[in-house]
Write a protein that binds this DNA or RNA. Structure first.
Length: 281
DNA sequence: TGCCAGGCCAAAT
DNA sequence: ATTTGGCATGGC
């Protein structure tokens, strides 16, 4: 059995670990004991919340950075538009943060997310880790397999992980990254529009997935991914009864209306909408 | 059973 | 610039 590790405290004001991990931005954390077990880069981490602090087996500075405990939440909330949908989402998600994910892991999981429910994205992520990821210590969890590892597989290997038509996209993208054809580190330093354009060169990456990578892995808190849930929220709350509102019109509206922390607003609206749907049944 | 899920892509308008 | 059909798989 594992050796019991000392839990170290991390100050965490204005933070909800539960909301953050349940919000569909990261998929591999699982409930364990009083908290959650997961992996940050190549380190196994256990973390639980006790009021205004976290207790973790991880390196405190690494945990604080991963969960973005430095984001100015009061300033972010002050930037949210004042309307009923936004107020309800803020009330429900208070303390949720946009975390800083490793870029490749984020990119790959969102390539597999196309036309999939959150539960199944998590399932695919788990199979890929267990089948092709490096095991982090005896009996430990698995790291997400890097692009070099996936690049040498065949499409059928990935189809066997229930990826369906996404298998070819993940494989092509892994090969492009492994070959240095697209450089994720370079993208992190580019202006938003150029970074998005560069990400869209990858197989299975369109505007929505590119925005997820920009938001969840590149610290672009303006990036506003529009999926089927958010599109529904936008149409029902901001374009009620109007016809012929095109995708382009929606995109322009979000940039203007939600502003500097649009990505945060988007994630709050997304998590609230999904949670409301699941509570109904 | 049928419909929907954190879409993308190529082709046609 | 926008619309349309095809693509795999699993949950409800």
């Amino acid at each position: 059995m594992t050796v019991p590790l000392a839990l170290r405290p991390v100050a965490a004001q204005e933070f909800s670990l539960a909301a953050t991990l349940a919000s569909g931005q990261v998929f591999h954390w699982s409930p364990q004991g009083q908290g959650y077990a997961g992996v940050i880069d190549e380190s196994p981490v256990y973390v639980e919340q006790q009021g205004d602090r976290l207790l973790t087996t991880g390196e405190p500075a690494v945990v604080a950075r991963y969960f973005a405990l430095d984001h100015p939440l009061a300033e972010i909330y002050a930037s949210f538009p004042d309307d009923p949908a936004m107020r309800a989402a803020l009330e429900y998600c208070r303390g949720m943060r946009i975390i800083r994910q490793p870029a490749w892991e984020c990119l790959a999981t969102f390539i597999t997310s196309s036309m999939k429910q959150v539960a199944h994205i998590a399932q695919i992520s788990r199979v890929l880790r267990e089948r092709y990821g490096r095991r982090l210590g005896p009996g430990g969890p698995y790291a997400y397999p890097g692009p070099e590892r996936l690049a040498v597989l065949r499409e059928d290997d990935l189809r066997a992980c229930a990826l369906g038509y996404r298998a070819g996209n993940l494989l092509k993208t892994a090969r492009m990254i492994a070959a240095g054809e697209v450089d994720l580190d370079a993208i992190r330093a580019m202006p938003d529009d150029l970074a998005r354009e560069e990400l869209c060169r990858l197989a299975g990456v369109g505007e929505k997935v590119a925005n997820c990578v920009l938001l969840f892995a590149c610290e672009r808190v303006r990036a506003f991914p529009i999926d089927v849930w958010i599109e529904r929220v936008l149409r029902e709350n901001y374009f009620k009864g109007k016809r012929k509102v095109t995708a382009g019109r929606l995109r322009d509206f979000t940039r203007e209306y939600f502003g500097e922390y649009g990505g945060y607003a988007q994630q709050y609206l997304f998590h609230h909408a999904r949670s409301a749907r699941h509570r109904k049944s």
